[in-house]
Amino acid sequence: MSRLTVRIAAAAAGLALVATAASATSASAAPAAGNAVINESNAFFQQAAQAGVVAVPLPTATAGYNATTGLSASFPVTDGTGGLRDFFGGVRLGGGLLFVDAKTGSAVSFHQLAFSFEDWTLTAVPDGSTTPVALFDPAGDNAINYSGTTQNLTAASLVLDAAGAQYLDTKLHTAFFAAGQSVGSFTVSYTPAS
């Protein structure tokens, strides 16, 4: 075997080793993790109930209730990039949301929820569509902090986005929803993939 052949074989073996190591490293890397929680205030819940409107989280999201803070829907983080502090990137969330208007008998469900750090908006894709709708916007006092690699956002207020309010009113045949309407509060806890 010539020196050139030996060098090429050694280089190829080295590249294969590097590729295998990189593949093993990426395969064992931890995925993005965390959750986003929408807390529906008691005031909004009562107004919605009087209008015959109910919002329910869909699997893999989970529902909860606290007498002080009201109803909550927790959505697991399934993917994410960027950072809250830099207003860059965002997180994708598991689960879905179902809105029902008992008075009109109409319903609309959403999946593919995402929170954009750039647009500061929570979007979701209506079932049967491919176009995301801006549903909610964090408002009021927003606190961002980091604990190690975990990024946390606490938004004192969560309001209906104008596009979301219009979409929900149209689909549910109601006039209940309004742009800027206070829904409750919003938190995100997000650890990027490692």
Results as ranks from 00 to 15, higher is better:
156 A>K: 05
111 H>C: 05
14 G>R: 00
159 V>N: 02
102 A>R: 15
3 R>M: 06
91 V>Q: 07
38 I>A: 08
140 G>T: 05
62 T>L: 10
136 F>A: 06
135 L>G: 03
149 T>L: 13
58 L>I: 07
74 S>Y: 00
161 D>C: 08
50 Q>S: 15
146 Y>W: 03
166 Q>E: 13
144 I>Y: 14
98 L>M: 09
76 P>D: 14
101 D>N: 15
132 P>Q: 05
112 Q>G: 08
145 N>T: 09
108 V>D: 05
107 A>L: 09
169 D>T: 11
69 T>I: 00
135 L>V: 04
49 A>F: 11
175 A>K: 14
140 G>L: 08
116 S>P: 06
191 T>C: 11
102 A>G: 09
168 L>Y: 03
75 F>G: 05
157 S>Q: 15
190 Y>G: 06
164 G>R: 03
76 P>F: 03
19 A>Q: 08
9 A>S: 13
29 A>Y: 03
103 K>I: 10
114 A>S: 12
32 A>Q: 09
97 L>T: 05
50 Q>R: 15
1 M>H: 12
84 L>H: 06
162 A>T: 10
155 A>R: 00
167 Y>I: 04
31 P>N: 04
29 A>R: 14
158 L>C: 11
101 D>Q: 06
4 L>G: 10
141 D>W: 05
178 A>E: 08
97 L>Q: 09
2 S>T: 15
17 L>Q: 01
147 S>W: 01
40 E>P: 00
165 A>M: 07
159 V>P: 00
68 T>L: 14
164 G>L: 04
100 V>R: 04
160 L>A: 08
97 L>D: 03
109 S>Q: 07
147 S>H: 07
162 A>Q: 13
52 G>V: 09
95 G>Y: 01
26 S>Q: 11
131 T>L: 12
146 Y>V: 09
182 S>M: 03
2 S>P: 10
173 H>Y: 10
59 P>Y: 00
178 A>C: 01
85 R>N: 12
36 A>M: 12
74 S>Q: 14
6 V>S: 13
62 T>R: 06
117 F>N: 06
93 L>V: 03
110 F>A: 09
99 F>W: 15
193 A>W: 01
159 V>T: 09
124 A>M: 07
55 A>T: 09
102 A>T: 15
180 G>E: 07
157 S>I: 02
168 L>H: 01
110 F>K: 03
189 S>T: 11
110 F>H: 04
12 A>L: 13
79 D>C: 04
